[in-house]
Amino acid sequence: MTKADCLVSVVAPLHNDAPIIEEFVAAVHAVLSTHYTYYEIVLVDDHSRDATTETVRELLQRFRCVRMIRLSKAMGFEAAIAAGLDSAIGDFVVTMVPNDDPPDAIPTMVDISRRGADIVTGVPTNRPEPGDALPMGRVGVSFAGAVASSGIASDGPEHVLSRLQPPGGQRDHAHQTQAPVSRRSGGGDRLSRNVFSLSIDLPFRTGAGG
């Protein structure tokens, strides 16, 4: 299989996620290394209090593609993603919530973006009903996978923040990310362009990941 000639960044916010990071990174790495020659995984540690930081430090030794940003205090999911997007260097940036979002969706989303979409949002199709047990106590976090096309080839880096796409717009908005974090002026306009919504089957995990 020929690998795509673009650089893909995966940005993932982490908060007290020590038990699941390794499996997440391994899974994302497997997908990225199969499909792309150039890629990075930007893990943003939202000032975790558990062993997240140490675990990521170990992963930094093992995976050359992993980068860590540690926030100086816990600032929440959105700020963590924003920090990651601000530092990501990819032509395409995928934001993912570890353990919730399926790494297998990355190539599909990047492909759609390569064909012209500036933002691709994943929508969970098998979201549990309210009251169902969610893994890892991550209640209410919805799928954050999205792709921002930016341009080493076009007009310079342009990172747009994904929007969490609650199924049917029913979810509370506590975890919805805010408008663009692109620090570049005019970044806001870019959100309105060509937004494709991609619906993919998102199997929520029921067992706690490794």
Binding site: L7, Y38, I89, I152, G156
Partner: peptide
């Protein structure tokens, strides 16, 4: 190089 130039171009866009 693909990494170097993409990061550096964020600071100095002409590097693209």
């Amino acid at each position: 190089f693909p990494y170097m130039v993409r990061d550096a171009a964020r600071y100095l866009p002409v590097l693209t």
